[in-house]
Design a protein around this nucleic acid. Structure first.
Lengths: 201, 201
DNA sequence: GATAAAGTATACGATATCGTGTACTTTATT
DNA sequence: AATAAAGTACACGATATCGTATACTTTATC
């Protein structure tokens, strides 16, 4: 690993920290360079502008979260058990400090401009794609009764995110405690399973 | 209505449009003044800074949305009927162009800084308070079975917002069509009602 | 230890925006 | 028509940030 690679890495780390702490627009190229112990000129040699740097940061942080994406519906396991697993996965994703910080940046940029939304959200929504496919497959296997996978997923994710994510991301409430989190997942899963069972009867 | 009041009104209208079109930070005092056909000096006489102006804009726009806040649980009417009504109310709120634009601004500012979140979100979350109280009262009356009002509200709102709001606010998807909207409300309400009924049996 | 690649320090020019100061003009009121 | 309040035009000074140019220094490699 040459000197250049080292600097490059330092820059990325500094950029992550700066972006997460101050958000995209409040972060200056100068402050990133400073934090990375790198001259501004070097920074600009590695990244021609802030946008490019943000893209790299988003990509990098998404990799950390990637393991959470995979979820496969298994017709041979009880629904409630799988729901619990899924719920815990969503919760883990959404309660991850990295995810919270990163998603704030992405959401702000996406809401600010449609162009940015297209560029960033594409990568970002991959996070949820795996989780959505579980519902699609469960529905295909007839495990959701007459409930459509779209509404099913919306109710399930929506509930968890409403309590465990948006309140933190927007209102800066403290992260859900262990006990509250468990209660949320339990109740959501049970309620959901009951609704499905009732629609199948 | 004196000349001053007229100008004041022009400023507010211009500020609403500018903020909604460009968001808080991309909007300059100059552009607001220009759009209001007012000199910058006059603008500063009415509002000492951008933040103050934003507060007024938020307050003003919230008043338009206020009617949507009131929802009262009625123990003598069927649950499903009330749920439908509630769902349509949420949908109407969330599909309102003013609400979409305003909420974008508020959310961006809230996510950007905890201080702003405290200042703005307080006013803003009133929107949902009335809707939340419905669930609290329904639960108190025993109409939700063993489902907690918090999780109930989260599932119900969460589902609708997930599909009818966040996709628009973040990913700039088109507003839900008449037909899709009706399907969403129907399915959500029925699913919810089934879950409640099953838990009461 | 010479050479080239990479990095640094520093100072630019170009913008953009903020909020204010000043002297002049319009409007309403008596 | 005189007076005062409100508004205007315009030009500041103060910052802040961008991205680049230039001349010097460090580091790796032969």
């Amino acid at each position: 690993m040459g000197r250049s690679d080292n600097k490059h890495n330092d820059i990325l780390c500094a950029a992550i920290r700066e972006f997460c702490e101050k958000g995209m627009m409040a972060t200056t190229m100068e402050s990133i360079a400073c934090r990375a112990n790198v001259s501004k000129r070097t920074l600009y040699k590695h990244y021609p502008c802030k946008e490019t740097l943000l893209d790299s940061v988003v990509t990098l942080l998404l990799e950390r979260i990637e393991p959470l994406q995979k979820s496969h519906y298994d017709p041979n396991r009880p629904l409630l058990e799988q729901l619990r697993e899924l719920g815990n996965k969503v919760l883990a994703l959404v309660c991850d400090e990295d995810y919270l910080r990163l998603s704030r940046i992405v959401i702000i940029e996406s809401m600010r401009s449609e162009r940015e939304a297209l560029r960033l959200n594409e990568k970002f929504s991959d996070c949820e794609r795996g989780l959505h496919s579980w519902f699609a497959n469960a529905a295909k296997a007839g495990a959701l009764g007459n409930l459509s996978p779209m509404v099913g997923a919306a109710m399930f994710y929506g509930a968890i995110k409403e309590v465990a994510y948006w309140d933190q991301a927007i209102s800066w409430k403290p992260m859900l405690g262990e006990k509250e989190a468990r209660a949320l997942i339990n109740e959501t899963c049970e309620c959901f399973a009951r609704a499905v069972a009732a629609s199948q009867a």
